[in-house]
């Protein structure tokens, strides 16, 4: 009968788990981290976000309020913009999807684990003793999520409009690979946005007697169906939006050539 001592308080990373518990947090750091790096870089470029001869517009730059592309709503870059500061139309709008994802319940759970080790994984020892979670500032700010949701829903309609525009080419109606990329992207983003926990609450979850409001009940059922795989929608849409930007960027730079299917 061999005797082994039980660690009374577990230190950082200490666990009796035998599986590869570190793999998921590692993938989250790699996936989310590379997205943040790429998105920041792409947003600051201020060029190659549309493709001449097509109506493709990168989702990172839509809606384009002021800018140099034909998609700009209010014309060229604003005159009040300081000359010494490089201009990019993306900086006016990217706060919205960034805030939406940063305050998303799914991502919160994932990045608290992966980036903050709180906990590193379930039943694995933590690095810090103190803890306030979301019970006080600064993380109480996460309760703002539904306000980002309102903007995100608006963006879905704008991106759907962009996807429709992508069927229009200089010679009329058509479908290119880029059209498909933008369409798939908006479907995945919609699946993510319409499965949001806050939306699920607002459209019906806040009621105890859902059966009294058939409209709310139908919306709540739909939202719940998407919500069941919210994490999956979150990752698929994150990669699709990044890929859509890469696609538009490379086509615009002439490195990739968009193939016309119809």
């Amino acid at each position: 009968m061999a005797a082994v001592s039980l660690p009374l308080a577990r230190k950082f990373g200490e666990t009796a788990r035998r599986d590869r518990w570190w793999l998921t947090p590692l993938l989250v750091v790699a996936g989310f981290g590379s997205f943040i790096v790429y998105a920041t870089w792409a947003a600051l470029q201020g060029q190659h976000y549309w493709v001449n001869g097509t109506n493709y517009l990168s989702p990172f730059y839509s809606p384009e309020l002021w800018g140099n592309s034909p998609h700009a709503w209010f014309g060229k870059s604003p005159s009040w913009w300081p000359a010494w500061l490089p201009y990019s139309p993306a900086i006016f709008i990217l706060w919205a999807p960034a805030g939406f994802r940063m305050t998303c319940y799914y991502y919160r759970g994932a990045y608290y684990k992966a980036f903050w080790a709180d906990p590193p994984a379930c039943s694995v020892g933590e690095p810090r003793k103190g803890y306030i979670g979301e019970s006080n500032w600064p993380l109480r700010i996460q309760n703002i999520h539904r306000y980002f949701l309102y903007v995100a829903v608006l963006f879905i309609f704008l991106l759907a409009w962009d996807a429709l525009q992508a069927f229009r080419f200089a010679d009329g109606f058509g479908i290119g690979v880029g059209t498909l990329v933008l369409c798939v992207n908006v479907v995945l983003l919609a699946g993510y946005t319409f499965g949001c926990h806050s939306l699920r609450h607002l459209v019906g979850g806040r009621k105890d007697c859902l059966s009294e409001s058939p409209g709310c009940k139908a919306m709540h059922t739909g939202c719940s169906a998407l919500n069941r795989k919210h994490g999956l929608w979150a990752w698929m849409s994150l990669f699709s939006v990044m890929f859509a930007d890469v696609y538009v960027r490379l086509c615009s730079m002439g490195i990739w050539k968009d193939i016309r299917l119809i």
Binding site: Y112, P119, C122, Y131, G133, S135
Partner: peptide, 15 residues
Amino acid sequence: HGIGYCNITKCCTNV
């Protein structure tokens, strides 16, 4: 009841 302490890491759901 301190619901703000929960940081939605889902370990409870998993077990």
